[in-house]
Design a protein around this nucleic acid. Structure first.
Lengths: 331, 331
DNA sequence: TTGAAAGCGCTAACAC
DNA sequence: GTGTTAGCGCTTTCAA
């Protein structure tokens, strides 16, 4: 790493002259600027970000806490975060909570150690279930800004980005109803999350508003991936339905596949829809009808929000709650 | 953020006394230590990592460059990297190259700005295709250590972790042959990567060594996700095969699904195997037979290697090339 | 037009 | 047992 000091020595000028020359200060002679810049270029000088951060208390770095990177949704959000952060001149320090509160606490601890200007977080499932957000809220006392995404919580006052989960599923349910479906099953493996509740409410509301009977046994919940096939297969055999809506990112794909195998004659009569993206919807054939969450866009928006908040020095911040629009993609 | 200075002032001692007390130096009185530690605890003092890094030139931070986070393989590697890094007391600064050389160059630039002790990288597809690794190698001149994973390259001398791609596919092919399969198709969307070549060679070698005829038209290559279903469906209709081996993470899942739909009577006669993990293999039913790459383990090993390299101050490093064992998981 | 000095938070050699 | 000082790389007054 080339330093200002080295440049100064080689050029026989002072460190401050070099610093000013590089930042084009107008009290430095053109000739000097030229010499300095040339040498800096040659030696590939790059300012040390740690030093800059120490000095200015600005790191141009954003923290990110992701609950589950193996979930394609979060992978895509991270993609959006990275893209937008880089575009706006920020780096990202990424941590994974793996749905554990303790890991999340550690992650936030880490981020707070003077190296980020703010962070973006979606809380771990465990934190949601135990309603334990104190470690997140604590950041506020230390005047650290943060933005919540996806799994946003009403109790915490801060900027938030999410989709309208209830509406998204409501619309998907109506979309099925408009296709003439009357026995619509609802499958979910995210009952432990608040968005799981919201989505389920969307389903139930849509049934109600369209005068369709609600059948408790058409709602299936599962959590263990190892026994998921078995559970889903049993559900498919035992219950009668003409459509399925999945609240998560994998159930619908699995169900299409299972139906095709164990009840092929019914395949064409059962319409599936779930949360997915352009890529994962193609994992099944015919491709899955899906609810596009615009995950990357959510990530981008989160970055915009946190940067805006960082730059806002007011004492009485007006927090924003942004909803990313969703839409149905018909295969 | 509480600083040493603040603690010192409150306690009416000097900054260095506080610093030493907190690190349990034996030239500080027990009583003082106690007072200092208590106050530090109360005020939730955490040393500023930037300052530590500036001082010691050690940041305890690792850079990570991932080509494609939407690929479940890389998501899982990142998971392993995070887990092991945290375990060993390191943070991670994550960048995504999105398979672009220019983005990769920017990412490495960023990482080099005095904030990491070393980095872990899998090169972008574009860099591999154009054989352009100079931006990666350049790190060596600046004495920055790095470890390559997965898409390792012979031309670059550094520590590497990968699987034995050729052997993995060779074994998978033989596994199919032992099941009595004689017309084995090979499908890939990673022909642009060196590991794509290695895998294909594994397939061809296995055929040869088992005296099976090689049919050029049983090898299918695709790249565009939008037309993949169409291309695969056509392949399935036109060619006759009794098994498929997929070199990538999605083809096999798609093929199982397509076969079941367009040629259901053949489904039970065609055995599929591809690269996957415990979770993605479950996206199809019956679950996919798969080659377990132990992606998380690869990430963990990469972390161990880079830390070992960072700690190794010798001038003539002996680089390691680690192979992570793979195995076949039968559904 | 340039340079000297202070300071961001921390550690460590060296005084006292 | 505790404090002073210098210095990591940088920016920014202020002085020359």
């Amino acid at each position: 790493m080339t330093t200002l000091k080295q440049l100064a020595k080689l050029l026989n000028v002072s460190v401050s002259t070099v610093s000013k020359a590089l930042s084009d200060a107008d009290d430095i002679g053109e000739e000097t600027k030229k010499r300095v810049k040339e040498l800096a270029e040659t030696l590939n000088y790059k300012p040390n970000k740690l030093a800059l951060g120490l000095k200015s208390n600005v790191t141009n770095t954003l923290g990110v806490v992701i609950p589950d990177i193996l979930n394609p949704f979060f992978a895509e959000v991270l993609y959006g975060i990275q893209k937008q952060a880089n575009k706006r001149g920020y780096d990202t320090l990424v941590c994974l909570s793996n749905e554990s509160t303790q890991t999340e606490i550690n992650a936030i601890q880490l981020l707070k150690q003077g190296r980020i200007d703010g962070f973006i977080i979606s809380p771990a499932a465990e934190s949601q279930q135990t309603n334990n957000f104190s470690h997140i809220e604590a950041a506020k006392n230390e005047r650290i800004k943060f933005v919540m995404f996806d799994r946003v919580d009403n109790q915490i006052e801060t900027d938030k980005v999410s989709i309208d989960d209830q509406l998204a599923v409501y619309n998907a349910t109506e979309w099925l109803i408009k296709k003439g479906k009357t026995r619509i099953a609802y499958v979910s493996n995210i009952e432990n999350l608040n968005i799981g509740n919201d989505r389920k409410n969307g389903y139930r509301e849509a049934l109600k508003n369209n005068n369709l009977a609600f059948h408790k046994n058409l709602e299936l919940e599962w959590s263990d991936i190892a026994t998921s096939h078995q559970k889903l297969a049993q559900f498919i055999k035992e219950e009668k339905f003409d459509a399925v809506i999945s609240a998560d990112n994998s159930s619908a794909i699995m169900i299409q596949s299972i139906v095709k195998t164990i009840l092929p004659e019914l395949f064409n009569q059962i319409t599936c829809i779930g949360f997915a993206n352009a890529k994962t919807a193609m994992l099944t054939y015919p491709p899955l009808n899906y609810i596009e969450q615009n995950a990357a866009q959510m990530g981008e928006k989160a970055v915009d929000l946190i940067i805006e908040r960082i730059k806002d020095k007011s004492d009485n911040p007006v927090y924003k709650q942004v909803k990313i629009p969703t839409h149905i993609v018909e295969a």
